[in-house]
């Protein structure tokens, strides 16, 4: 899957999880850019992404992801 394609799918998931259609994620987006992105929604988000791409993040990835770009890296590698 192309990175752009992954990002597009992620964008949909983000809008759905945070219930906000104005969100547009880029590779540089971090949790501080999205107001509701806290430890609770982080796990919901991770689960949704796992279901969508049929992958499983390792715990070190769940806690270590710095931005959306790193999430795309992992998806590109695993999916």
């Amino acid at each position: 899957m192309e990175r752009n394609e992954i990002l597009e799918k992620l964008n949909e998931i983000f809008r759905d999880v945070f219930d906000d259609d104005s969100i547009t994620v880029t590779e540089e987006t971090t949790s501080s850019d999205i107001e509701d992105w806290d430890s609770l929604t982080h796990i919901t988000l991770i689960s949704e992404v796992e279901d969508e791409f049929d992958i499983k993040f390792a715990m070190k990835e769940v806690v270590g992801m710095k931005n959306v770009g790193e999430m795309v890296d992992i998806i590109e590698r695993e999916a």
Partner: peptide, 11 residues
């Protein structure tokens, strides 16, 4: 607590 308990429970 988030890294070593909360996340493992949720996952």
């Amino acid at each position: 607590f988030k890294n070593y308990l909360f996340y493992p429970i949720l996952r």
